[in-house]
Nucleic acid binder design. Sequence first.
DNA 1: CCGGGCGAAGAAATCGTTTTCGGTTGCTGG
DNA 2: CCAGCAACCGAAAACGATTTCTTCGCCCGG
Lengths: 339, 339
Amino acid sequence: MGKKASPGRVGIAAVAAAAGVSPATVSRVMNGNYTVDAQIAARVRQVATELNYQPNPLGRSLVLGKTETIGVIVPDLANPTFQAALHGVSRAAAKDGYRVLIADSAETTSEEPILSSEMRRRCDGVILCAPRMSIEQLSGIAESLRPLVLINRPDDVPETPSFSVDYGHGITELAEHVLSLGHRHIAYLAGPARSVSHGVRLASLEKFAAAHPEVELRFLEAGSSFESGHSAVDKVLDAGVTAVLAFNDLVAMGLLSGLHERGVKVPEDISVTGFDDIPFASYTMPPLTSAEVSIDVVGERAWQSMRGLLRKEPAEGPLKHTFEPTLRPRGSTGPAPRG
Amino acid sequence: MGKKASPGRVGIAAVAAAAGVSPATVSRVMNGNYTVDAQIAARVRQVATELNYQPNPLGRSLVLGKTETIGVIVPDLANPTFQAALHGVSRAAAKDGYRVLIADSAETTSEEPILSSEMRRRCDGVILCAPRMSIEQLSGIAESLRPLVLINRPDDVPETPSFSVDYGHGITELAEHVLSLGHRHIAYLAGPARSVSHGVRLASLEKFAAAHPEVELRFLEAGSSFESGHSAVDKVLDAGVTAVLAFNDLVAMGLLSGLHERGVKVPEDISVTGFDDIPFASYTMPPLTSAEVSIDVVGERAWQSMRGLLRKEPAEGPLKHTFEPTLRPRGSTGPAPRG
DNA sequence: CCGGGCGAAGAAATCGTTTTCGGTTGCTGG
DNA sequence: CCAGCAACCGAAAACGATTTCTTCGCCCGG
């Protein structure tokens, strides 16, 4: 076993032999090193195209010490947020000639560190997207992962660029929006307990509640999916609130659907807000009030930061970047019912 | 430039030196080759963990001739269908210790062949997901891409495993469903012209129309997004049909929303069907009749096929696998209005 | 006429592994 | 007592490129 590539494989040596030059010369030609005679270069180029020679990336990588590849690690590839982030990174990296190796940690916190360093050894850098691992674990391996860029990780990791959506600010704006509409009994349909972005929302809402003693804010468990919103309808009705801040648009849409089945009118009886402003949000019935976050832009910016690190450009500006969601008031929120 | 890895880098040589053995022995120990003295092996292992030595995958790959990585090429990472396929492949491959390198061709047909072979050189195999390139181009490069597996590519490429959803069968079932409900004036809201899966639907519907001269089947341009469905509402009303087969669930939901704004009742006035049975489909108002396709399962099966090729297992069974969507009749379709 | 300098191309070292191939032990059976 | 045979370990040759480092030839000035 371990039989090498088929003997017919065209390597640099084959080209060199066919062109009657040394491998070194072929390499120089392929890399646009102009210390080679124009005539010879032309012949080499022709032979190369004739044999359809393409330099083996592994050989190059080994000697060059770089793979032109970065790793992106997400907790769950099925989650639209991470898909969008991956999309943003991938598109931006491709523009600069980089590829992305992807890893889905499947939410297994314990495997993340291993997965990350495993990946780092194959790539020139790593982008961690909303890593679930603890801050201790993260700072423990951060050094060995560099160049490292974080997405949606609120913690501060020294010397590490971080790009994240300010979920706290967004949810606060939504809360203030319904507050300004006169609502005093508000519920938050919570996301998955492990989600950091849920934690951030929670903290901000508690601050909001403290600042507004006149409102009664209730926290109800839900999740991050359409189904969890749909099945939370009973809890919501029992809570007797007039406005619901859902963890995200999916949950809000599920709730909308459930309320509709119960004959509850939105926004006349209950106002509902989402989060993320996914494309469907404008087309629900009624259109969903939400907070727009363009996570793919975050991914794009994360790549640009990574590119800077790879080029060893001196870091400029702050390391920590936060993106403010923008409020999108629509038909699903209205004045609080008189009562 | 070209400065090598920092001198502190622990390679197999460093471990060998520290343990007082040759690199060969270290390699044998790391690979579980038991022709090495237990005592020495133990010492090597200890030194390895002390130095935190991890074999460089590039070095291994170069000599082993394999990277334990496969490439997945999709036309558009923002498309939920391809995201799901990627997810399926990625999860399944990860279970077998393989990573996936991903490429988003951004729908640029011309770049696909270059992108694919570029990718192939870094990976042990390639999975092409709904490639937009022509069958000529595809069969032209297929040989150089092997091991190669196709997803959602209806053409027959010799010797190449192919996994695809039978969109034709699915749309026919939906058409027969509304036919059986008494509808005779039916519209198809077409998908993007370049989409192969749209082409398949179209062909099947024409066959359906030919087989049922009593129905009037109209083809209306739309697209693949929520918005395109929403903006197609006028066309649909003008067409004077009683049932609409939308390209996919997103389009159907957009249409649903548009019809609702116009005060058109579903399914009393118009029946609507989607395609894909995305999670929200059950929760629209009314719940959307659709055809369920589990594209992530397709991705998973595609990986299993790829794994077989990588292991050089003799191909068993047919190369071409089609997955039948299953009809999910729900509230958005009902008896044709009397008239 | 000859040596210094320069430009171009080849030889060889390198990157970090694996693996073949020998060579050294130590042991056993004749 | 020694041939033969394991068992085990190290030297060295891959893998496929890049990049020194050399060498060679040529031009030009002294």
